[in-house]
Design a protein around this nucleic acid. Structure first.
Lengths: 196, 196
DNA sequence: GTCTATAATTTGATAGAC
DNA sequence: GTCTATCAAATTATAGAC
């Protein structure tokens, strides 16, 4: 169980998906990058590329949810808005530190398959849905009224995704930082103790 | 000048990019869809696929900017927030009406090439930059203070892009509608006449 | 079970007939 | 200039030796 072969495959696939997307990633390259013989890909993933992509997206989705949860836990418990800013700033830092590759591990593939592969589209939809549920719970735990949670979690996730898009294209962290401020303001406005 | 061949090529390429992305679109398919012989692709675009993609992205970028400007012009001139909601609602309608294909014509390709093709990445960055400038001007003309325009235009565009991502993945217009409300609220808060 | 070789197709790109 | 045929290399997938 030392070096789990299927896991090595998924890990290499996840890295390649982030840089080259789904159609841009070849199974030969996955074999080469992971050091796993080509035939083993079909031994462990009889469903071929689509099955491997499904597993990779789910694994990446869980990993990213964990990372975001950890960053949100770092922030001050009594200041949701400050924590939102912190999360966007950390996302921007990670992006710059990794030469603009370490963004959302789902988005590129999600857009690629949205109109061309219904199986994988559903997988990305499930992952985004779980992320939104997690953000809902975090917002409600922080004092946001339940009936406003989904709108704000949607804003949080969409702004993060849009920020990744704009920051990666421009190779500039500024969009992500600005979006952190904007989302934080909107979250603050939803808190019942907020002055009006 | 009746049926401009290079234009037919670009148009077919734009449609294929929206459904299958950059790496997912083959030149053979472009030739077939446009009805233009394969060799003509290299006659009109000697730079090959990258040159054709550059031209297609620029053409799609101008077209989408025009469409958004038209939608923004439809809204009430004295109510920026209502116009923002209207724009997101229209984007959602168009998305549903086209079976979730008619979203941003740049985003999919932008994410695909962000870490793999610097030439095309720069093209997408230029397009997003021009869009943001246009939104800045529209916001300022509507009464938003100049020093807040870029943050709000970034929120507008990022939320739209993130909304397209979430709505396409889930095949549900709800995220785009919710985001229209959120962005509208943030725009309203930036107007000097807004009550505080 | 591990791995190599190869099949069948498609890719981007060129050569060259007309 | 228009178009066909083809190239070399890539793709996903499979067969089968070890």
């Amino acid at each position: 169980m030392a070096s789990d072969t299927p896991h090595r495959i998924v890990e290499a696939t996840a890295n390649l998906f982030q840089r080259n997307g789904y159609t841009g990633t070849g199974l030969k390259q996955i074999s080469a990058d992971s050091g796993v013989p080509f035939g083993s890909l079909y031994h462990f993933f009889p469903g071929g590329k689509e099955a491997l992509a499904t597993e990779t997206l789910r694994w990446s989705g869980r990993g990213y949810a964990t990372r975001v949860a950890a960053v949100l836990a770092e922030g001050p418990r009594d200041d949701l808005a400050a924590t939102v800013r912190h999360a966007f700033d950390r996302a921007a830092e990670d992006l710059v530190a990794t030469d603009y590759v370490d963004a959302c591990p789902i988005a590129t593939v999600a857009l690629e398959v949205a109109s061309s592969n219904d199986t994988l589209r559903e997988v990305t939809a499930e992952i985004f849905g779980e992320w939104l549920q997690g953000l809902d719970a975090w917002l409600v735990a922080g004092g946001v009224p339940e009936d406003q949670a989904r709108a704000l979690s949607t804003l949080f996730l969409a702004a993060l995704e849009g920020g990744f898009l704009l920051s990666r294209a421009a190779r500039d962290p500024a969009p992500l930082h600005a979006l952190g401020e904007q989302v934080a303001a909107q979250v603050a406005a939803a808190l019942p103790t907020e002055p009006r």
